[in-house]
Design a protein around this nucleic acid. Structure first.
Lengths: 204, 204
DNA sequence: GTCTATAAGAAGATAGAC
DNA sequence: GTCTATCTTCTTATAGAC
C-alpha cells in the first residue's frame, strides 16, 4: 500500500471512531508515519481526504452492486435452489449479510463514519440511506419475490415481508457497531429471528 | 425559560444537527442572544453544557420510565383490555411510540445527538442502547407477555416476537431522523408492518 | 449577568531546504 | 516526498468594567 492509500486508510479508521471534526491532520500523519505537512503533497486539504474516502467507497460499492446484480439474475434463473431448504437458505442469506457487513473492515468503518456524519450533510444522508436502507431492501426484496413465486415463502405483501426480514438484521448490526461485546448475543438473536421468520412466512 | 435553560436548549439543538465538535460556544451564545463570555457565568465550560444536557435527559427519562412502570403495572392488571381489539391496540402502541419519539423535540434532538456521539464515549454508547434498544424492548416485551397470557397473541418466543415488533419501528425511526421528508412513506410502512404483525402473531 | 478586550493554545495550511 | 519552521485563523476561556 502506497502512502496515498495509507493516508485514506488511517483517516477512515480515525474518522469512524471519532468523527471528522475530532480527527486532526496531525493524528492522521502520525499513524501513517510522516509529518503533517507531508500530507499536503498527497491531498490538498483535510476535506479532500474525506472526499477521497467517499469516492473510493462509491467505487467499491458500485463493484459490489454489479456483482450482486449478476448473482441476483442468476438467483432468479436458478429459482429452483429456493424450492428446497428455505430455512437454510434464509439463515445463509441473513448470516452472510450480517457478518460481512459487520466484520469487513472497510464496510464497518465506513458505516460508522456515515453514522456520525449523516446529519451534517444531505448528500451523506442519502448515501447512508442508499447503502444501508434502500439497496439491501431492494436486493432482498427481489430474492423474496423469487422465493414467493417459487412457493417457498408465502405472503401478499413482499415489501413488508422484506422489512420483517431486514429490519431486525439492521437493528442488531447497529447494536454491534455501538457495543462490539454484544456480538454473541446479537448472533443468537439473529438465528432465532430467521428461524422464526421462516416459521411465520414459510409454506408449511 | 431562563437563560441557563435556554443555553441547554439551544446547545442541544445545535449538537443534534452538527455534533459537539462542530458547535462553537459562540454559536450557542448567538442563539441565546448573549455574547460568548456570558455563557461562562452559567456553565464553567463547553463540556459542562454537554454534561448538563445528559443529566437533564437522564432526569426526564427517569420520570418517563416511572410513568411507564405505573402504566405497565396497570396494563398487567387490566389485561382484559387486550382481550379484544388486538390490532387496534397494537396500532395504537406502535404509532404512539413512533410518533412520540419522532416528534417530541427533546427526544428527537437528544437521540440525534447520541447517534452522532455514540462511538466517542463508552458511556454514551450505553445510554443510547438503554434508551433506544433495551428499554423499549423490555417495556414492549412485558406488554406482549400479558397479551400472550391473555391469549390475544400467540408465540413460543416472546423475545423474538418483541424484536419483530420493535426492530421495524426503530428502523423507520432512523430513516425519518436522517431524511424527515420520508416520514409519510415511513408512516405507511409502519401501519402495514403492524397489521401484518397482527396477522402473523394474532390468534385467529 | 452582560459586556469588551484579550490571552492562550490548538489546528489547518504554506514556504522553502533537503 | 519528507522535513522544520512558521503563518493564520479559529476557538475556548479569562479579566475586569459596568
Amino acid at each position: 500500500m502506497n502512502t496515498k492509500e495509507k493516508i485514506l486508510d488511517e483517516a477512515l479508521t480515525l474518522f469512524s471512531e471519532k468523527g471528522y471534526a475530532n480527527v486532526y491532520v496531525n493524528d492522521i500523519a502520525e499513524r501513517v508515519g510522516i509529518k503533517a505537512p507531508s500530507l499536503y503533497k498527497h491531498y490538498k486539504s483535510k476535506k479532500a481526504i474525506f472526499d477521497a474516502i467517499i469516492d473510493e467507497m462509491n467505487r467499491r460499492f458500485a463493484i459490489q452492486a454489479e456483482a450482486l446484480k449478476i448473482n441476483g439474475t442468476d438467483a432468479g434463473k436458478d429459482a429452483d435452489i429456493y424450492r428446497t431448504l428455505p430455512e437454510d437458505q434464509l439463515l445463509k442469506l441473513g448470516r452472510e449479510f450480517f457478518l460481512y457487513y459487520l466484520h469487513d473492515d472497510y464496510n464497518r468503518k465506513f458505516r460508522k463514519m456515515l453514522t456520525i456524519e449523516q446529519f451534517h450533510d444531505k448528500e451523506l444522508a442519502k448515501v447512508y440511506s442508499k447503502l444501508y436502507v434502500d439497496d439491501p431492501i431492494s436486493y432482498q426484496g427481489a430474492l423474496f419475490g423469487f422465493m414467493v413465486a417459487a412457493g417457498v415463502l408465502k405472503t401478499d405483501n413482499v415489501e413488508i415481508m422484506t422489512l420483517h426480514f431486514y429490519a431486525p438484521i439492521y437493528y442488531l448490526l447497529t447494536i454491534c457497531d455501538r457495543e462490539p461485546e454484544r456480538e454473541e448475543e446479537a448472533l443468537k438473536l439473529l438465528d432465532e429471528h430467521i428461524r422464526q421468520f421462516d416459521r411465520l412466512y414459510g409454506r408449511k
